[in-house]
Simulated assay, not measured.
Amino acid sequence: MTSERRPGRPRSETRRRAILAAAMAELEERGYADLTIERIAARAGAGKQTIYRWWPSKADVVLDALVDMAETRIALPDEGSLPDDLMAFILATFRQRGQRPVLLGLLAQALLDPVFAKAFRDRFLFRRRAVLRQILDRAVARGEIAPETDPELLIDVVYGVLWYRLMLDHAALDDDAGRQLSSLLLRAARPGP
């Protein structure tokens, strides 16, 4: 069996990372609404055609950058207990609050484009939920969560608070909020006497 190579140059990981870094830098400076493929290409030293060959839209470039960033900055903690794991995960998540314009830009794009909405859900939202689900599953195995507790509801509470505060910007997403949310979840999930 032979493997066929796609036409064109192979995708360079170095070039891909430069493009994603350029996209994030442009986002920090200009915001999502003013982000363009032209500016990303110029900053990365890449051709627009290279970017369009690898990604169908600016939203897809940003999604890849966001996925990479989340996987490196918000790792799966294993501190040995639900309180410590939950606190580490929520604090790391809330500390990315500077990504608010990026997240809201992608959410807006997802509302307008059903194809992108599926990619955003599957590649970012559901992957982040899966990390939190692993934390909760380990806690169930250790007997730290009542067996009748619905882990999906606990996950919804975490991301509900996160997205609600991101969208409305009415309250802080800081370490104090993270600690309060962790405490609330622990009380809700604690096994009975």
Results as ranks from 00 to 15, higher is better:
166 L>P: 08
1 M>G: 08
101 P>N: 05
120 F>L: 11
52 Y>M: 07
176 D>A: 04
105 G>E: 01
118 K>Y: 05
48 K>P: 00
68 D>T: 11
51 I>Y: 12
192 G>F: 06
189 A>Q: 14
170 H>I: 12
73 R>K: 07
93 T>V: 09
139 A>W: 06
98 G>E: 14
100 R>T: 00
26 E>S: 14
164 Y>M: 11
84 D>R: 11
126 F>W: 08
62 V>P: 01
116 F>W: 01
9 R>C: 06
6 R>E: 07
126 F>K: 14
39 R>K: 02
123 R>T: 00
97 R>Y: 09
60 D>P: 01
114 P>E: 10
103 L>A: 09
100 R>G: 00
13 E>H: 13
38 E>I: 10
147 P>F: 14
5 R>M: 09
6 R>Q: 07
54 W>T: 08
157 V>W: 00
123 R>M: 05
138 R>S: 02
169 D>K: 14
34 D>S: 04
67 V>I: 15
132 L>Q: 15
144 E>G: 03
152 E>V: 03
124 F>R: 13
96 Q>T: 13
172 A>T: 12
115 V>L: 09
159 Y>W: 07
87 M>A: 13
169 D>S: 13
80 G>I: 07
66 L>H: 03
155 I>E: 07
63 L>F: 09
118 K>E: 08
171 A>F: 13
83 P>C: 05
170 H>D: 14
158 V>E: 07
58 K>S: 00
94 F>D: 11
178 G>A: 15
44 A>Y: 04
1 M>K: 07
167 M>G: 12
47 G>M: 02
108 A>V: 06
117 A>P: 03
115 V>H: 02
35 L>G: 15
6 R>K: 14
94 F>E: 09
121 R>N: 15
63 L>K: 02
